Simulated assay, not measured.
Amino acid sequence: MEWLPEVGKRGWVVLTKDGKISNNRLERIAVARAQIKMFTFASQSLSGEEMAGILLQAIVPMKRFVSKHPAPFIAKIYRDGHLDMWKDAQMLLEELQEF
């Protein structure tokens, strides 16, 4: 997660298939510290082709989502292309303060 601060500084958005972030508090804290906007696929058993298809459906909603929600956040992308907030800025920052 050493690369996250640079991503945060540049204002880039992270797209990952890493489902472990839901169980790894240190990774979530790194996201919060770096002020990252992150999307993760809800299913970790997707092929590259499936992820590409989902991303094509979700890219426009993702752009709107990013413009409406302040960093940091972690949102999930589902097979049908719909998005749900999983951890918003308030939740992540509270977790960071508890750390």
Rank of each mutant, 00 (worst) to 15 (best):
M1Y: 11
E2C: 01
W3Q: 13
L4W: 07
E6Q: 14
E6S: 12
E6A: 13
K9S: 15
K9H: 14
R10V: 02
R10T: 06
R10F: 10
G11P: 06
G11E: 01
G11Q: 00
G11S: 04
W12Q: 15
V13R: 03
V14M: 06
V14S: 04
L15P: 01
L15D: 02
L15T: 07
D18L: 08
D18H: 04
G19A: 02
K20E: 15
K20R: 14
I21A: 02
I21G: 01
S22I: 08
N23F: 10
N23A: 02
N23C: 04
N24R: 00
N24G: 08
N24A: 10
N24E: 10
R25G: 06
R25K: 14
L26D: 08
E27K: 00
I29G: 12
I29N: 05
I29L: 15
V31H: 04
V31A: 09
V31Q: 02
V31W: 05
R33F: 01
A34C: 06
Q35D: 12
Q35G: 01
I36F: 08
I36R: 13
K37G: 01
K37R: 15
K37M: 01
M38R: 11
F39T: 02
T40N: 03
F41T: 03
F41H: 00
A42C: 01
A42W: 12
A42Y: 13
A42R: 07
S43H: 06
S45Q: 05
S45V: 00
S45R: 06
L46K: 11
S47M: 03
E49P: 09
E50R: 14
E50G: 09
E50Y: 10
E50L: 12
E50A: 13
M51K: 14
M51I: 09
A52N: 07
A52S: 03
G53M: 09
G53A: 10
L55F: 15
L55N: 03
L55W: 15
L55H: 02
L55K: 03
L55I: 06
L56Q: 10
L56C: 03
Q57H: 12
Q57I: 05
A58D: 00
A58G: 08
I59T: 09
I59L: 13
I59H: 07
V60M: 01
V60Q: 11
P61E: 04
M62S: 00
K63R: 10
R64D: 03
R64P: 00
F65V: 09
V66D: 15
S67G: 09
S67C: 08
S67Y: 02
S67H: 07
K68D: 14
K68N: 15
K68G: 13
H69G: 01
H69F: 02
P70I: 14
P70S: 14
A71H: 09
A71N: 08
A71E: 15
P72E: 08
F73Y: 15
F73A: 08
I74H: 11
A75R: 04
K76I: 05
I77Y: 00
Y78N: 12
D80E: 06
G81A: 03
H82N: 11
L83Y: 08
L83E: 14
D84N: 11
D84C: 01
M85Y: 04
M85G: 10
W86M: 14
K87L: 15
K87W: 07
K87T: 02
M91P: 07
M91V: 12
L92A: 04
E94K: 12
E95L: 05
E95P: 09
E95V: 04
L96C: 05
Q97I: 05
F99V: 12
F99K: 11
